[in-house]
Amino acid sequence: MFFNSIIAVAILTYTVSSAPTIMPRVTNSTSTATVPTKPVSTDAIQQLLLAPLAQDRFTTLNDNANFVFDFGAQSLKTAPGGFGGELAAANRKNFPALIGSGSGMAVGFLGGCGFNTPHVHPRATELQIVVDGTIVTEMVPENGVMDPKDPTKRRVIQNTLTKFQMTPFYQGSIHTQFNPSCEPATFIASFNSEDFGAGQVLDETFAFDEQVVSAAFGQAIDGNDVDKFKGKIPATIAKGVMDCLNKCPNIKRK
């Protein structure tokens, strides 16, 4: 199954990789917004969270620039230095104008063969739309959702999205995105939470005690070998799958 191959590649690729390489940005790192994003102090964020009325928030956000978030600004990226791309996310901490809106947003810049490793959002459902290139998406729902063609297997919802096509990733579901081409791809993701959060499944799994990890993998990984994997699992956007890398000779593998 494609999802299983992605998991395997995520582990094996970074077992043999050396230091990470920062992929070039898909867009220019220099902001093109006419009004730059203006930071808001921690005290101001607390005032916004405690404001008795929505109209009181406008008094705290007294500069029009407080209502602009520039996804192209290098300083606002939440996952800089990814192996296969970068991600910028707007939440209520780095964009306090969202406080009270119940909404958040992210933009993902996947380089050729870029792979946003399997992850979950603990507090939100994600609606993702591709705005440039092609992206393969996969989602594994909760326990008990089985493949209609083979009820003995979990259902994996896989789709290939092209420009302006969208798919949902439900709150708490494991999902992933992969750019199968040698050219960059970009997606925009909206969330029904100001604090959607994210947890990378492999990174979190290997954070457990080594004996727990070994048991979770059915002893396929010896407890003594767990430390070899830790620190080599990519935090977010990785560079894989091997079939894609093999057809894109201009993409460096480390």
Rank of each mutant, 00 (worst) to 15 (best):
N64Q: 15
P118G: 11
I221Q: 00
A235V: 05
K230D: 04
T160D: 05
I251K: 09
R155H: 14
T117W: 09
P168R: 10
P39V: 06
P20I: 03
K247C: 12
L245K: 13
Q55D: 14
D209R: 01
F208K: 07
T32G: 09
F69S: 11
I11P: 02
T37E: 04
G111Y: 13
Q158F: 13
I7S: 03
H175M: 15
G197L: 02
P118W: 07
T186A: 09
E210F: 00
C248M: 03
H175W: 13
A73F: 07
L48W: 01
C244I: 02
Y14S: 13
A10T: 12
V26M: 08
F83E: 14
A89T: 14
S41K: 06
N94G: 06
V212C: 00
N143Y: 01
F67E: 12
Q177V: 02
A88C: 15
D243T: 14
V156I: 05
E183S: 09
D225G: 01
V107Y: 08
K228W: 04
G144H: 08
S17L: 08
G199R: 08
C248P: 04
G82A: 08
P151G: 10
S101D: 15
S173N: 13
P20M: 02
V68K: 08
S41I: 07
F169L: 02
N179G: 12
K93Y: 15
G197A: 01
T205Y: 07
D56R: 02
F71Q: 12
V130P: 14
N246E: 15
V16L: 11
N116D: 12
N224L: 04
I11A: 10
G240T: 12
I251L: 14
N246L: 13
S181F: 05
